[in-house]
Amino acid sequence: MFQFPAFISMSFFSDIGDQFYQSFVEDGRYMYIVEGLGATLLITVFAVLIGVVLGTVVSLVKVAHNNNPKKLRIANGICSLYLTIIRGTPVVVQLMIMYYVILSATNVDKIVAAILAFGINSGAYVAEVIRGGIMSVDRGQMEAGRSLGLSQRTTMVKIIFPQALKNVLPAIGNEFISLLKETSVAGYIGIQDLTKGGDIIRSQTYLAFMPLIITALVYLVIVVGLSALLTKFERWLRRSDYR
């Protein structure tokens, strides 16, 4: 007959159901996880949107300035400053500054503050990723587009950008995954996100194992799902490479 090693006491298994009950079922504590997950996803999705838009604009300004140093001097200066500040300071500090300093006088919801802070943070990383992607597209592509009479803008949108997107997708996917996990510091401004939810259960039941492991598992499942989705999208973008 199968025997468990002696160091795992049978009480561990008999306790596990009990622990689960205390952590999630009693007093409806599972709602901390569910509502926390909702907040985490809400912040992540909108921060990603802000990050992509902001990052795209910043990268386009930087590329345009790079191609013609006389153009967009001031805008480029602002973008460089933005990149330096955001990449040079921790996201938790940016989050707290956003909520306790910049928005302190306003009545803005904590979630909105977090969306702004994480979105602005993500934008800096996305900008550099996209800029790298645009620069990786062969110069001849722009020349070919322009030689056909297409404007700089049309060539950028229809020829350069789709190719750049394909090149940067793995890196952008990484950024989304990082962002999802970074939102776990939202508790610093009192948001009950997934991490905070798990932690509240721990503090109420004095049981650390269950809530924290489940919290970790929820993150893991989302990240794995997101990766699978990105892989699919990437394969679709690469359909022109198959021969």
Binding site: Q141, E143, R146
Partner: peptide
């Protein structure tokens, strides 16, 4: 220039076809 380039076709050494389009 864009207007004039429409009437000046160009063929490149390295083709420069758009790889993401048919």
């Amino acid at each position: 220039v864009d207007q004039l380039r429409r009437k000046i076709g160009m063929v490149f050494q390295h083709f420069n076809l758009f790889p993401h389009l048919t």
